[in-house]
Amino acid sequence: MSNPYFSNSKIFGEQRRPANPYPNRAQAPNQAPGPWGPQPGAGQATAPAPGYDQQFASVEQSFYGPSAGSMQTGRMTYDDVIMKSVGVLAVVVGVAVASWFIVPDAMKVPAMIVGLIGGLVLGLVNAFKREPSPGLILAYAALEGVFLGMISGVFEMLWPGIVVQAVLATFITFGVTLALFKSGKVRVTPKFTRFLMIGMISYGIFCLVNLGIMWFTDFGGAFGVRSMELNVLGMSIPLGVVIGLVAVVLAAMSLIMDFDAIQRGVQSGAPRKYAWAAAFGLTVTLIWLYIEFLRILAILRGD
């Protein structure tokens, strides 16, 4: 059996039935004593009833046949999550590449604003929906793809090669975080959750304040407060790099939360449709991680 519990059980282990369902049929003694004396006809071999082989084969298939898969049970599996995540990310990347090369220069800024606002709205809708909607999740991925295509094109024009660097940094961080989670070295605890919540709220407030400064003042240029310099041991370090590294740590912690939620969902037998919710959560975090690396690299490379 595929279930380890049944395989190792003394009751449901390998020796669950004899090779011959009636091993003593042909070797029966002349008289087999029963609870009320000798049984008539016990010394004679008895032929199986007509149709017995077909009946036993049917019963055997019912009890010892292959285990039901996720299609039969309707439960979420890791394969479901992987396939849905790859699909959603493929939409993001495909739309980003297409919009990068197809959208005319005069429409790039409007397209970026539409992608940013539309992605934010659908992100909030998907985050608060009780039931995952594949259509809305894919629409979110398409809008985010438009935004990422536009902003990546601008950054690549100003700092050639920066997009490849940001993509590599994103997936390396994803791989390291997944390896740490799988090894058991990092686990989600109440303290971990509280720290992440406080950090994300604080970072969100900072981003809103910095956005207001960028829009309504000339302070700091394109990165606002992030462009300020910190003097540490005689070295000048951009504040944006420090804040960006903190944001990367928060995003990595968010990935660990995503992995933990997926693991608990699979172990508890969550419905298969929630693989879409898991794919959505991973996509949101990876996009956040990519944007942070893109900004850190731009600040390091200067104007």
Results as ranks from 00 to 15, higher is better:
Gly269Tyr: 07
Leu233His: 07
Glu60Cys: 04
Asp105Phe: 12
Ile82Gln: 12
Val176Thr: 11
Pro18Gln: 06
Ser268His: 07
Asn30Ala: 15
Gln27Pro: 06
Asn126Ala: 04
Phe128Ile: 12
Thr189Leu: 04
Gly224Thr: 08
Ile291Gln: 05
Val266Gly: 01
Phe206Lys: 06
Lys185Met: 10
Leu297Asn: 04
Phe206Trp: 08
Pro4Met: 05
Ile262Pro: 01
Asn210Ile: 06
Gly74Gln: 01
Phe219His: 04
Phe171Arg: 04
Ala169His: 08
Gly118Pro: 13
Ile102Asn: 13
Ala222Asp: 14
Gly240Phe: 02
Lys182Glu: 12
Leu286Lys: 00
Leu178Ser: 06
Gly41Ala: 09
Ser268Cys: 05
Ser227Gly: 13
Pro29His: 08
Ala28Ile: 01
Met76Pro: 08
Asn210Glu: 09
Thr77Gln: 03
Asn20Asp: 15
Asp53Gly: 11
Pro4Lys: 05
Gly51Thr: 04
Phe12Glu: 10
Pro18Ala: 07
Gly51Asp: 03
Tyr5Ser: 13
Pro132Trp: 02
Gln72Met: 12
Phe223Asn: 08
Asp80Gly: 07
Asn30Ser: 15
Met107Leu: 15
Met200Tyr: 00
Ala275Val: 02
Glu60Gly: 10
Gln27His: 14
Gly69Glu: 05
Pro48Asp: 11
Ser133Asp: 12
Val95Asp: 06
Ser227Val: 06
Phe12Met: 12
Val164Glu: 09
Asp80Pro: 09
Tyr274Cys: 03
Gly244Glu: 00
Ala179Asn: 04
Met112Gly: 12
Gly37Glu: 00
Leu122Phe: 07
Gly135Thr: 09
Leu168Asn: 11
Gly281Asn: 11
Val248Ser: 08
Phe195Val: 15
Pro190Arg: 07
Pro238Ile: 06
Gly204Leu: 11
Lys191Asn: 09
Val93Ile: 15
Ser227Leu: 03
Gly153Tyr: 00
Ala127Trp: 14
Pro104Arg: 03
Thr217Asp: 02
Asp53Phe: 07
Leu211Lys: 14
Gly13Arg: 10
Ala166Trp: 00
Trp276Tyr: 04
Ala106Val: 15
Trp36Tyr: 14
Arg264Met: 00
Tyr5Gln: 13
Gly69Trp: 05
Arg295Asp: 04
Ala222Thr: 15
Val164Lys: 11
Leu233Glu: 08
Thr193Pro: 03
Lys182Gly: 07
Ala251Phe: 00
Gly220Met: 10
Gln31Tyr: 12
Lys108Leu: 13
Val232Lys: 03
Leu116Ala: 15
Phe216Ala: 02
Trp276Arg: 01
Leu230Thr: 10
Leu211His: 13
Ser152Arg: 03
Ala279Ile: 07
Val88Arg: 02
Pro132Cys: 06
Ala68Gln: 10
Ala45Tyr: 03
Phe174Ser: 06
Val97Asp: 07
Gln61Glu: 14
Glu156Ser: 02
Lys84Gln: 12
Gln44Asn: 08
Leu168Glu: 10
Lys84Glu: 12
Arg272Trp: 02
Ile262Cys: 06
Pro134Leu: 01
Gly153Cys: 02
Ser9Glu: 10
Phe219Ala: 07
Val103Pro: 03
Ile151Thr: 15
Ile117Cys: 13
